[in-house]
């Protein structure tokens, strides 16, 4: 389907926000789902890019994605202007399981892993605690407009101490989490593996969303394989992107 770019703006260097309008009436996504997105730029780069949905602005028939320029595809996307159209396939993948809000919910984001967790926070009646970690200031403050708008209680943490606490999202999570808490996370595989280890140690339930290379997003290319705890490969696009940490073979990731 085609969607029109309503806004595409740089938040801090390399981080962009894109609001898409005219998504069509049948577009009904849930937090944790993603879209495959591609501009009309010919055959290079060839593939669409999988990007998580950050905000569902249902009343306006819009969605917002927040992305980091990583390579050629996201750079081309960042150069697009309001009024231009993009091809969208989605919403795709399995959403985060709905949180049991009688439990304390902690969201743990590694930099550009934050957008789907913002979507989840936006769907909750009780504000969760968001921990967002990154290498340096820009890797955590890029999302602060959304955090303020949704009034999410947030702990910022940077590895170089340039903003918020000094440390990592996981060290900060370890300081706050208890065995009865419910943890949702999205970030690099190394971070998710540390959360899985912590979950095993402390006993909290954790659902994590993977960032993975994909060609199709719909389960036909089989490119986005991760090793399931049962020894088979599962695919991030169709079986995920959200998995319970106990579903994954973290030692062979």
């Amino acid at each position: 389907m085609k969607a029109t770019i309503k806004e595409n703006r740089e938040l801090v260097p390399r981080y962009f926000t894109m609001t898409l309008s005219e998504m069509g009436d049948d577009f009904r996504g849930e937090p944790g789902q993603f879209v495959m997105i591609r501009g009309d730029w010919g055959s290079d780069p060839l593939l669409a890019r999988p990007l998580s949905i950050c905000r569902f602005l249902h009343e306006d028939g819009q969605i917002r994605i927040v992305y980091r320029v990583m390579g050629r595809g996201t750079r081309r996307l960042s150069e697009m202007k309001a009024g231009q159209t993009v091809d969208i396939n989605g919403p795709l993948g399995n959403p985060f399981p709905r949180p049991d809000e009688s439990r304390r919910v902690l969201l743990t984001a590694g930099a550009i892993g934050a957008p789907p967790l913002i979507a989840l926070a936006g769907s909750m009646a009780v504000s969760p605690l968001l921990i967002i970690g990154g290498r340096t200031r820009n890797d955590v403050v890029f999302i602060s407009d959304e955090i303020r708008e949704l009034d999410i209680e947030t702990i910022y943490v940077t590895e170089d101490g340039s903003y918020g606490q000094k440390g990592t999202a996981v060290t900060e999570l370890a300081r706050h989490v208890g065995g009865n808490d419910l943890v949702y996370a999205c970030g690099p595989n190394r971070m998710l593996a540390e959360i899985a280890r912590l979950s095993e140690e402390i006993g909290f339930e954790a659902h994590v969303s993977f960032e993975e290379r994909m060609a199709c997003g719909i389960g036909v290319c089989l490119g986005c394989a991760v090793r399931h705890a049962n020894g088979t490969y599962v695919h991030v696009c169709k079986d995920g992107p959200v998995f319970n940490v106990t579903d994954i073979d973290w030692d062979r990731l």
Binding site: G73, C224, A225
Partner: peptide, 12 residues
């Protein structure tokens, strides 16, 4: 075992 995909100029 992954990785399984690498995008190239107009190809995969």
């Amino acid at each position: 075992a992954p990785p399984r995909l690498f995008e190239t100029a107009s190809g995969l």
